[in-house]
Each structure stands twice: as structure tokens, then as C-alpha cells.
Design a protein around this nucleic acid. Sequence first.
DNA 1: CAACGAGTTTTGAACGTTCATATGAACGAT
DNA 2: ATCGTTCATATGAACGTTCAAAACTCGTTG
Lengths: 333, 333
Amino acid sequence: MSNALNKPHLVRPATLERVRAQIDRLGYLPSQAAQGMRSQRAGAIGIEINAVHRGASDVAQPFLTDLTVAAPRHDVHLVPFAHGSRFPAVDGYRDMVRRRLVDAFVLADTHTGDPRPEWLLGAGIPFAAFGRIYDHPELGWWADVDGAAGTAQAVEHLHDRGYRTAAYLGWPLHKDDSEVADTRREGWLVRARELGTAGPELTCEQDLADATLAARTLLDQLDPGDAVVCASDLIALGVMYAAAARGWRIGPDLGVVGFDGSLTAARHGLTSVSQPLPDIADTLLGLLTDQLAGTADDPGGRLLTPTLTPGPSTDRTTEATAYTPLPAPGNRR
Amino acid sequence: MSNALNKPHLVRPATLERVRAQIDRLGYLPSQAAQGMRSQRAGAIGIEINAVHRGASDVAQPFLTDLTVAAPRHDVHLVPFAHGSRFPAVDGYRDMVRRRLVDAFVLADTHTGDPRPEWLLGAGIPFAAFGRIYDHPELGWWADVDGAAGTAQAVEHLHDRGYRTAAYLGWPLHKDDSEVADTRREGWLVRARELGTAGPELTCEQDLADATLAARTLLDQLDPGDAVVCASDLIALGVMYAAAARGWRIGPDLGVVGFDGSLTAARHGLTSVSQPLPDIADTLLGLLTDQLAGTADDPGGRLLTPTLTPGPSTDRTTEATAYTPLPAPGNRR
DNA sequence: CAACGAGTTTTGAACGTTCATATGAACGAT
DNA sequence: ATCGTTCATATGAACGTTCAAAACTCGTTG
């Protein structure tokens, strides 16, 4: 009766029909455990949840959702696990494969000096990383958002909408994720110079208060009709705050573009460069199943292009007050 | 050699030591698949991710993190799955247990009219719900936050901090989650009456723009020195916006308390009633493993008490401008 | 009519764990 | 020396799936 399921071509149609009927009647479904035992595969992918920094990243949790959605397409399920759980650090990764709880891992939140890629490579444990593998980009498989393309799109969008200059508020370049910071800035700079709309730039931490403070300084160098491209939605929110405090209407007076396409952006009517998280999730799982099947290409990375999601924050024509809760009537100056 | 692991008491100490040495040397760990096959248990708990509403709820995603952290304590792992995936709606739940991919489910985001509890009860599939099972509260196991205790704490906190009255901005009572809305309001009303600090109340949707609009109306009935208790952090953010637009300093002029203890609250320096998510996660997994082991008490629910996380938004003494990016210098009126 | 072959179906082994049962060893009592 | 008795270890079956190999059924051919 197993042939009916697995090799339908070499079973007589009549028998096949009979078996199918019984399967339907009994509601039979093959046991994951038994299949896993026979195939020596767990059919599962591990994904580490950062329980320490919680929602520090606006994308980590939506990314998990996209992985979950993509998983069935690749005939796997996900097994999330957390820091500070029974599986601490790298040892935990090894133990999970030893137990055959998972076959491979998706690595999120990679950063420079991240010990995991090197260790997993050494242990021969398959993985695919969201974000480039900084120390050995050519040794493993990864996918990342094309940050430069994203900020370039933002600059073009602002130009199309008629904003005079595009300033930039980004991250300092000495951080862990300096490559991300660098790439996003580069995309803005190159395209803005091409279009002749490059404005001043400044950096700040990934923190609302710091972003607002920095934005205040940046806005000193701008006038109504200008715009700001930001390295993240949180920073963009800070810019909106600083602008509103100054009495500028977001949209008509100041264009603001964030990065990530986070819930924060949606809630505040912020135009944002949306990370292609569904694509990235699907790509990573594909890279993993290829590795497991032994049909993988050479190691390497793929850059996926983000898309710009327009919102009222770059709409000059609107008398926009509905979307932004900030402007106080008569507070403009 | 299996005895050594499972029944160490009836094996000779010397042999046990010898076996242990080999286990360490070979890095042996029992196979999840084989164990699952023998025990007829997957050792896994399914949890549905709402991929449609994404981060609509500020707690759903942190809750998943807490479940992940709690899982190892109960000797299970999690298997998240999503709407619109291969396992659609209730059929998907049944198929997952048929495949022995999971033994039971945690239900999040239950609401009135939710078909899942009834269906799972009928199918005999064990589950535990975050949030009461509205239609059959006595038939299943659930855990929920004690909303009334939370808003009562908020009222007390505001009273302690010397705010004159505690107004309330909540949800309309005709919604799906009307019981949640009702409970939170009740906690505010009862305690505020006891303390003689009950102010006006108003309702709005779980939406930033709507909350800001409603807050504007509510603030018309308040004066500096008053405070507002809110049904959620998002609503509280709207209150902060409306107050800032009016030139009131959050904290010194107006106390604001949110509900959920979300990242939004933390980012904006908002005092908030923090949901006891780690407790809830742990409780639910405990209820599930008890059910699976057959040692469960009678079905029923448990209310867990939230804790108040103070922030600058209820700090009257501070000349607070650092935390809140909103107040524009000289905009007060 | 026996031998062959193609098309179908049945059988049996293996995956790794657990647990009940069987076997073995050691020792004191008959 | 034989028989129990106890404690320790070894054996084997079962869980459900898959797949190779064996067996069976026919119609065809030498």
C-alpha cells in the first residue's frame, strides 16, 4: 500500500483507486516520526529567536512569520528556539542536529564577529543566513536585502514627487552592522548626486530619542520642500517628530522615507523601503533544501531588491493631517 | 545501553560509568524521530501564526518568543504554522496531529465566535488558549491576563503619583473582544471610584489616528494634572500625541498609562501595564503537558496578574523632555 | 506445454528507541 | 553438588515508513 502513495505509476489504476478510497475513509496521513526515521531527515529547519533583544529589530519577528508561511512550500516545518534556553549558543545548534530535531538552520541577525557561521561551517551543519556572512561571505549561502537599491529608490521617489533635496540620516559606520549602514548610505549618495538632489547627512543610533535629537540638527540645515531619507523606520519616526515639533507638515513641507517597511511605518503613514522578507524567506529555505538534497550551487549570496511602499509622508499635495497625529494647529513657525 | 539512560537505578555503577563515557565520547543523543515513533508522541506543540494581520497585535509576536523560551522547560518544541499555508483553518489542525507533527496546540488570539475551540474539543485534540474560550469557558483550558487588576493597578499608580483624576480611553464594547474591553474598563472604573479619581471616559478603535482624534476630545474635558488610563499602548500613544499637540508635557502635565507592556511603550517612555507573557506561556504549556500526561485538573481558566512598568509618562517631577520626542519648545498654550 | 517476460503485488528488512522478557552470573542454602 | 534467589545484562519485539527484492499472475513464444 505504500507503493500507491510513492510510486503511483507502477500500480494498477484499479488498485490505486481502491487504496485511495481506504486512505480517505480512514483519514490516513503518514507519520512524520516514522518518515523521519526512515529518511534520516527531520524535515525541519531551526531558527534562533533572540529573546534578549526582543523586538529590537523591527524585521526579525515579521521575518519569522514569512519563514513560517514559506516553509510548507519547501516541505519543511520550522522549529524556533531561543537564547538562554536548553540549547545555549553554538552547542545547542549541534545538539539539535544530533537529536535530528532539525536538519539545518536559518541564521537571522548575523553581524560582524558572529561566531555562528564559522562554527557551523566547521561542524558541517547546513545553514543559510539572512544578511551576509561577514567574515566568510564566499563560504556559505546567504540572502540579503539590496540596501543601496533601496535608498536609491527612495531618492528617485522623492525626486519624482518634487522634493528639492534628499538629506540622509543614517547609522554611524563603526557599528557591528557597518556594512549595512554603508550600503544604504551609498545608495542614497550615488543616486542623489546623479539627480543633483544630495542634501546634508548625519548619523544617529537606532534609538528614537537619539534620532529625534539628530533630526533636529539635520532640519536646521533644511527648508520646507526638502526631504530626508532614513536608514530605518525608527529613525524616520524621529525625523517626523522633530519636524512636527518645528511645525512642519510631514508630506507637504517635508518628505520622509524610512527603511524596513515595518509596522511602525504603516502605523504612522510613513513611506518606507520595504524589505522583501517573503522573498528572502523563500530564498533561504530554497538554499537550504538544495544543500540538503546535494543539488546546491556554489556557496554565495543573493541580493534581493526591496520595494518602496508610498505613504502620506511623501505626499506633497495632501493637506495631510489625517494620517499624522502630530501637527498641532497653529503651531507652525 | 538504553537502561543506562532510562533506568540508572538498576544498572551497576561501574557499567553506568562505562556507558556514560562512550556516550560522551561519541556525542550520542537520542533521535527525536525514533523516540517519537516509540512513544507515539511528537513532543511538539503547534502554534498558529496570524500571517494576515501581521503585527496587528502588539503582543502576539512577543508571546511567541516567550513560548519558545518556555518550551524546553516542558520538554517540547514548538512548530509554528500560518494561515494560508498548506494547513488551512481547522482541517490543518487535524492533519497536523494525524501526521503526528504535533501533539497539541496553543491557541492565541481567541475571540468570540472563534470556531477553533469548539472544533478542537469535538475532535478531541488537546489545546490551551491564551485568552478565555468565549463560547465554552468551562470546557477547555485557558489562561489570560487579569485585565481588571491591570487597569486597577494603573489607577493606583496614578493616584500614588499625585494625578488628580484618571480618565479612561478604551475600546467600544460591541467588538469581538468585548469581554477584554469590558474587563479592562471595569478595573479602571471600580478602583477609580474607590479612590475618588474617576474621570471621563471615551472609546476608540485600535488605531493610532482614531485614538489621537478621540484623545483630543477627551483632553477637552481634562486639565493639566490629570491622567489617562488606556486600553492599549497604541491608544496611549495617541493620547500622547494629542497632549503634545496641545503643548502639554507628558508626565508633568498629563499622566498616561498604556496596556500591554509592548515595545511601543518602551520606545516612547510610556508607563504600561505589562502582560505577564512569560507566565502565560509557561502556564499554557504546563496545562498542555498535563493534558497529554492525563494528569490534568478539571478544565478551566487561570487569570494571571500583570505588572505595572513605570516610565517617564507618569513622572510628574521630571522636567521630562528627554524621553518624549514630542513637545515642541514654546508650543505650549 | 514449458519457458520466458512484463506487469503487479507481497514480503521483509532497516531506521533508533524503549520496555518487557529472557538469559546469565554470583552466592548462600539445602 | 543442586537448587533457589537476587541482581545485572542481553535479547527481541514493536512503533510506521520506505524500498529493494521476491513472488505471483498472465499472456506470449519457442
